[in-house]
Every structure is written in structure tokens, then in C-alpha cells.
Design a binder for these strands. Structure first.
Length: 319
DNA sequence: AACCGGAAGT
DNA sequence: TACTTCCGGT
């Protein structure tokens, strides 16, 4: 399409009617490069899609393109998502011999990658939201968090209000029609996204984190970290978490000098939104977040660097 | 738009 | 206590 500023990734957008038709701008005001945003998921591809913001649909993920080009939207996301059993269901192309094998291997590789990424992204989101990865374990509050997150992810207007007082179990027992009933426009998106989480949780259970079943369980970020009771996270910890995942978040916050603990908030509104989601504070903004950072000045946790610069801060005690 | 710190609320 | 919310001023 000849839309100015469109990247090839736009294909992903366009393939999804909801985005173009009904997106509202309540979340978009601060979005810098349009393509830094999620490609919207292609729900048709074996139930696998990787919208997880900020990191997908970037130049670093060319395979995303290949996938979306090639895959004709199937009907609905499949209920389960198994890396080993997914077969490309569109082998109509009479690819023969070597070529066919190559292609099949290529597809398999891509699928394995995709599944791995999905799991990673769900895990990341779990950590960020501080909720369990299995929707069945969610309380009403967790459901609301997840909804907030999903709204953020897909740039949906606020839909969480229509899903109040539902536990994760309730949510899981709902059909797509039930979802549509609660949100005519976005019920299907939410349903599909929930399906991804359920599939991811099911997979996680089926083939738990392979190789290293080591005893270093304490700090490994599996269920313990994700699940609920842990004490509320501190803002400085949260910022560190984001900084430690440059692959995911470098577009909104990054180190300027990791050794000295100097970092820059590149997208203040985005960071504030993530913080708000994490703390369940929908009204969070940079004004408030920065006030909290300033509280750290006298506590000696964060300060302004010697030469004060806009949106640049420094951890007093770098790692 | 960011930065600052007081003051009050949760 | 650790923010969150609000705010008047830089």
C-alpha cells in the first residue's frame, strides 16, 4: 500500500480489520515510530501470533514477514499449540522433492521459533503484570490486569469494564460468542489472545522448560516469579527490569552508560503506561512517575546525572 | 514538555 | 513506607 510511512509490516496490520477500522487513539499519542508498534496478530496462523508489542514486527524479525505473507488466514485459532505437532496446513503448493523438503524444514524451524517466542513473550508479560501464566489461576484483579495489558497491546479502547468480576476460570469457560456479547467489536480479539495464553500455559505444563532442570529454581523466572503473592515491586526495580530487557524495551528506555547506571527514558508516556499496568494504576503518567523517581533523590537510589539532561537519570548504586 | 519539591491521600 | 495524586512555579 502506498501509505506514507508504511513499512512492509503493514501487511500485518491490514490483514486485521479491527485495527484499521476501530482503533481509537487513547493510547497512541506518544507512539514515536509507528512501526515500533505491534504488528497486529495474524490470528489465522495455527493460532500462533506474536503481537507482543515493541519487539515484534521490527527489522530484527524478518521471519514475521515471511509468515504473514505466506499464510492464508484460516478459520479460528487452534485450541492447542504444540511445537512438535503443528503441520503447515497449506501444502497445496505442489512443491516436490528437495524444494518441498527444504520448505517444510524451513517452516518447521519457523514454527519452533515462533512457539518459543510466544512462550517467552507470555512469560515476559506475566512478569511485567505479576500474574500467573495460566489464566485458570487468575483472580478478578488479575483478569483486569490482563485486559488492561491486552488493550495496551492491541491499542483497543477500554473494554475491561465489561469484563468485571470475572475470574480467569470464568473467562476460560466463556465461548467466543460470550466474548463478542461483552464486546461486540473486540470480543474476538480478546478471545483469541486469551487462547494464546491458555495454549502457552498448556504447553508450559506439557513440556516444562527443557534442558536445565537445575536447582537454581529460586531466581529462575518460572512460576514463582510470575504468580501472585510477591510483594509489590518498587519503581526502581521495575525500571531495572525494563532496562535488562533491551530487546523488548530499548525503544522506550535504555542505558546510556550501564556501568555508571545512567539511563534514558526514550518514551516517557510508554514507560509510564507500563508502570501503570504493572501497578494497576490506569491513570499513571510521566508526571506522576517522575515524581516518584524524584522521591528517590533523597533516598539515594536514583539521581540526576552530573550534567542534567532531559529524561536522563542515574542509579546511585549501579549493579 | 520536562523538571522540581511541598502537601495530602492511599 | 512507598508511592500516587495534585499543583504552582521554573
Amino acid at each position: 500500500m502506498g501509505t506514507p510511512g508504511c513499512t512492509p509490516h503493514s501487511a500485518v496490520f491490514i490483514s486485521h480489520p479491527h485495527y484499521m477500522d476501530t482503533r481509537t487513539d487513547w493510547l497512541d499519542e506518544d507512539v514515536k515510530p509507528p512501526r515500533s508498534l505491534l504488528g497486529l496478530p495474524d490470528f489465522g496462523w495455527s493460532g500462533v501470533c506474536l503481537p507482543y508489542c515493541d519487539r515484534i514486527a521490527t527489522e530484527e524479525d524478518p521471519w514475521m514477514l515471511r509468515m504473514t505473507e505466506g499464510s492464508a488466514p484460516a478459520a479460528l485459532p487452534s485450541r492447542t499449540l504444540e511445537p512438535c505437532s503443528i503441520k503447515p496446513n497449506q501444502s497445496q503448493e505442489p512443491s516436490s522433492g528437495m524444494e518441498g523438503q527444504m520448505e517444510e524444514r524451513y517452516l518447521e524451524q519457523v514454527q519452533t521459533m515462533v512457539v518459543g517466542e510466544v512462550l517467552k513473550d507470555v512469560d515476559t508479560a506475566c512478569k511485567l503484570l505479576n500474574i500467573a501464566s495460566d489464566p485458570l489461576d487468575w483472580s478478578c484483579a488479575h483478569v483486569q490486569k490482563w485486559l488492561l495489558w491486552t488493550e495496551h497491546l492491541y491499542r483497543l479502547p477500554q473494554v475491561s469494564a465489561t469484563f468485571q468480576e470475572l475470574t480467569g476460570r470464568d473467562l476460560c469457560s466463556m465461548t467466543e460468542a460470550d466474548f463478542r456479547q461483552r464486546s461486540t467489536q473486540f470480543g474476538d480479539v480478546l478471545y483469541a489472545h486469551l487462547d494464546i495464553w491458555r495454549s502457552a500455559a498448556a504447553m508450559k505444563e506439557r513440556c516444562p522448560p527443557e534442558d536445565s532442570k537445575s536447582e537454581t529454581d529460586d531466581d529462575s523466572w518460572s512460576d514463582v516469579m510470575c504468580s501472585y503473592p510477591s510483594q509489590p515491586i518498587h519503581l526502581w526495580q521495575f525500571l531495572r527490569e525494563l532496562l535488562l530487557k533491551p530487546h523488548n524495551y530499548s525503544r522506550c528506555i535504555r542505558w546510556l552508560n550501564k556501568e555508571k547506571g545512567i539511563f534514558k527514558i526514550e518514551d516517557s508516556a510508554h514507560v509510564a503506561r507500563l508502570w501503570g499496568i504493572r501497578k494497576n494504576r490506569p491513570a499513571m503518567n510521566y508526571d506522576k512517575l517522575s515524581r516518584s523517581i524524584r522521591q528517590y533523590y533523597k533516598k539515594g537510589i536514583i539521581r540526576k546525572p552530573d550534567v542534567s539532561r532531559r529524561l536522563v537519570y542515574q542509579f546511585v548504586h549501579p549493579v
